[in-house]
């Protein structure tokens, strides 16, 4: 038996969440799951496949370079993976929108009850996963022949290059189910680090008042090399696009430093950031629940505090 990882990739590189998923696959492998194979399906994805082959702990890479997989359609991917499934005891996807979309479709086709968003491996069939917005942790055992799993990227270190490069084997495309067609994408372009893998995240909530005021966060983000996030309230209010949302049903982040500005701290938001190493909260309401998880809190008007913070950070940088 072996462990298969479905790679999320783009622009010739593996997504950081894929590297975390490979680490998780390695843990399952050592617990008896067997060697780790990575499947890179896409268009012009040879470079990403080579990157996967160089990663420590990867024994084999399958590449399927075909236009069917250009936009990671769940329908096309499930048709590709289903015939391979019997050779693997575990099939892992990162718990990103890529994996959340694609994994359950495969799971149903192989009659497996997927285990979503695992954050720890106990043994090859036992895993820990958060439920109720992370307010409880369930330890579950799967006895399904093929275990389909999505992996919480923040819970596993990113795998790094090392060891002898794995062999890269070509995989023929499956028939196109022809059920859906990619029309287009409107992706947020940013020079800042990606939210889920940034070392520092600064997020704004309803208290920011408007989208224009997010410039106050962006200036600080640029000083810190941070990503900018938001609470659901700020996204719903139209301040920032949906891909900024941190929370139970948005993005899960666990940076070294998370700065929550004008965010009250609803359960659903805390679910997305409470595993951050250090949490800072800036809020004018001293009873805001965000202060219960914050290591450092400042009670006050964010429009006074943010410029002071920017100045203090700039001064600290000078030293």
């Amino acid at each position: 038996m072996a462990v298969l990882v479905l790679a999320e990739h783009g622009d010739g590189t593996l997504a950081p969440a894929t590297l975390s998923t490979i680490t998780c696959a390695g843990e399952i492998g050592k617990a008896g799951g067997g060697e780790v194979t990575v499947l890179v399906a896409g268009k012009d994805c040879r470079q990403a496949a080579d990157e996967a082959a160089a990663v420590d702990g990867v024994a084999k890479v399958l590449i399927c370079d075909h236009e069917f997989y250009q936009n990671a359609s769940a329908e096309a991917l499930a048709a590709l993976v289903q015939p391979l499934a019997a050779s693997y005891g575990h099939i892992l996807y990162p718990a990103t929108t890529f994996g959340k979309n694609a994994a359950p479709r495969l799971a149903a086709l192989v009659d497996s009850q997927q285990v979503s968003d695992i954050q720890a491996v106990i043994d090859a069939e036992t895993f820990v996963r958060p439920i109720y917005a992370g307010n409880a942790l369930a330890t579950v055992r799967s006895r399904d022949a093929v275990k389909v799993i999505t992996v919480r990227a923040t819970a596993f270190e990113k795998a790094v290059p090392g060891g002898a490069p794995a062999m890269v084997e070509d995989l023929a495309p499956a028939a196109d189910p022809g059920l859906s067609k990619f029309v287009g994408a409107k992706l947020s372009a940013s020079e800042r680090p990606e939210l889920t893998s940034a070392r520092v995240v600064i997020s704004g909530g309803r208290g920011m008042g408007s989208g224009d005021n997010f410039i106050l966060l962006e200036e600080i983000a640029d000083l810190l090399g941070a990503a900018v996030g938001a609470s659901r309230a700020a996204v719903d209010a139209g301040f920032v696009p949906n891909d900024y949302q941190v929370g139970q049903t948005g993005k899960i982040v666990a940076p070294e430093l998370y700065i929550a500005v004008g965010i009250s701290g609803a359960i659903q938001h805390l679910a997305g950031m409470k595993d951050s190493k250090v949490i800072v909260a800036i809020n004018k309401d001293e009873d805001a629940p965000i202060f219960q998880v914050a290591d450092y809190g400042i009670v006050g008007d964010l429009f006074d505090i943010l410029p002071q913070l920017k100045a203090a950070l700039a001064a600290a940088k000078q030293d």
Partner: peptide, 14 residues
């Protein structure tokens, strides 16, 4: 129109 990690994606479903 789908909310994905990078922003928005549009697909046409049969």
């Amino acid at each position: 129109t789908r909310e994905v990690d990078g922003g928005l994606e549009t697909v046409a479903l049969t």
